[in-house]
C-alpha cells in the first residue's frame, strides 16, 4: 500500500495514527496518511465518515485525541491558537459552505486577508481583490453580497479569497457538492490548474465520482476511521476490495457498513 515515495515527492503532510471522537461517537480511529508535494490528493468516503474532520485537524480547527500531524517537518497538532497563524497562512482551506462573510461584498471578502496579512490599505486591497476575482471569472460580481449569488459563484469567490495568501497547500471541503455539472467541472479545472501551474498541493474531500476520477493524482478511501485504500486512479478503480468497489460503483447494497442505516 505505501510504496516508498521518490525523494522529490517527500511528504509535505503526514497524519500518524490520528484518532478523534465526538462524545461517544468515534469518528477517526487510527488514520495515517501522507500527502506529497504538488499532488492532488482526494480523500473519499461516505458522508459522516470523517473526511472533513480529517482536514480540519490540519489547520487546528479541531484537536486530535491521539496521534500526530506533521506539516513540512513541523508537528502541528500540539500548537496553540496563536502559533497556528503561520501554518494557516501556508495551508488554505475552502469550506463546504464557502463561509464568505455575509455582511461584506465579494470584493471586501477577498480584500480582508490582503488587508490583514499583506498590510494593504483598504483601497488598494479592493483593487487587488477585483483582480483576484477576475482569475476565477467573478469580477463582474465583485460588488454583490454572498446571499445574492449561487453556490457555485460563492465557491469560486471563496477559492479566490483563500488563494490571496498564496498558500502552499489548499484544502477543499466538498468543492463540487451541490453544484450543477457545468459549475462542478469548472471548479475541477481550477483545482487542476493550481497544481499544474503553481505547484500547489491540493487535498480534496469529495464523494463526487466524476471529479475524483478526472483530476485526482492519488485517492485515499476512508472507511471506519482509517485509510482503507490508497493509490492512483487506476489502482483504486482496479481495487479488489469489495467495499471500495461498492463505493466507486455507487451500489446501495454491499459489504459496506454505513452509520445510520
Amino acid at each position: 500500500m505505501s510504496d516508498a515515495p521518490p525523494p522529490a515527492a517527500r511528504p509535505v503532510i503526514e497524519f500518524r495514527g490520528v484518532a478523534k471522537a465526538f462524545g461517544d461517537k468515534q469518528v477517526l480511529r487510527d488514520l495515517s496518511l501522507d500527502v506529497r508535494k504538488g499532488e492532488v490528493l482526494f480523500i473519499i468516503g461516505t458522508s459522516g465518515v470523517g473526511k472533513s474532520v480529517t482536514i480540519k485537524h490540519l489547520i487546528g480547527l479541531l484537536g486530535v485525541d491521539a496521534g500526530e500531524i506533521w506539516f513540512d517537518g513541523k508537528r502541528v497538532d500540539t500548537l496553540r491558537e496563536p502559533e497556528l497563524a503561520p501554518i494557516r497562512k501556508r495551508i488554505g482551506m475552502v469550506f463546504q459552505n464557502s463561509t464568505l462573510f455575509d455582511s461584506m461584498t465579494l470584493a471586501e471578502n477577498v480584500a480582508l486577508p490582503l488587508r490583514k496579512h499583506q498590510g494593504m490599505r483598504q483601497k488598494k486591497a479592493l483593487v487587488e481583490a477585483r483582480r483576484r476575482l477576475d482569475q476565477v471569472y467573478m469580477s463582474e460580481f465583485a460588488d454583490r453580497y454572498p446571499a445574492e449569488l449561487s453556490d457555485g459563484m460563492r465557491k469560486r469567490a471563496a477559492i479566490a479569497r483563500t488563494l490571496t495568501l498564496q498558500p502552499e497547500v489548499v484544502l477543499f471541503d466538498e468543492p463540487t457538492t451541490g453544484l450543477d455539472p457545468v459549475n462542478a467541472r469548472r471548479i475541477d479545472r481550477l483545482i487542476r490548474e493550481l497544481s499544474g501551474g503553481q505547484g500547489v498541493t491540493s487535498v480534496v474531500v469529495s464523494h463526487d465520482l466524476t471529479s475524483i476520477f478526472s483530476i485526482a493524482d492519488r485517492i485515499a478511501f476512508i472507511y471506519q476511521g482509517a485509510v482503507r485504500a490508497l493509490g492512483s486512479r487506476d489502482e483504486i478503480r482496479a481495487s479488489d476490495d469489495p467495499v471500495v468497489q461498492q463505493f466507486i460503483q455507487g451500489q446501495s447494497s454491499g459489504p459496506m457498513e454505513t452509520p445510520g442505516f
Binding site: 480540519k56 489547520i59 487546528g60 480547527l61 491558537e81 496563536p82 497556528l84 497563524a85 503561520p86 494557516r88 497562512k89 488554505g92 482551506m93 469550506f95 459552505n97 463561509t99 464568505l100 462573510f101 455575509d102 480582508l112 486577508p113 490583514k116 496579512h117 479569497r161 483563500t162 495568501l165
Partner: peptide, 14 residues
C-alpha cells in the same frame, strides 16, 4: 452556525 468564524481562523485571522 454557518462556520464563518472557522472561515476567519482558516485565513489566519483571530
Amino acid at each position: 452556525v454557518t462556520e464563518q468564524l472557522d472561515g476567519l481562523r482558516a485565513l489566519a485571522i483571530d
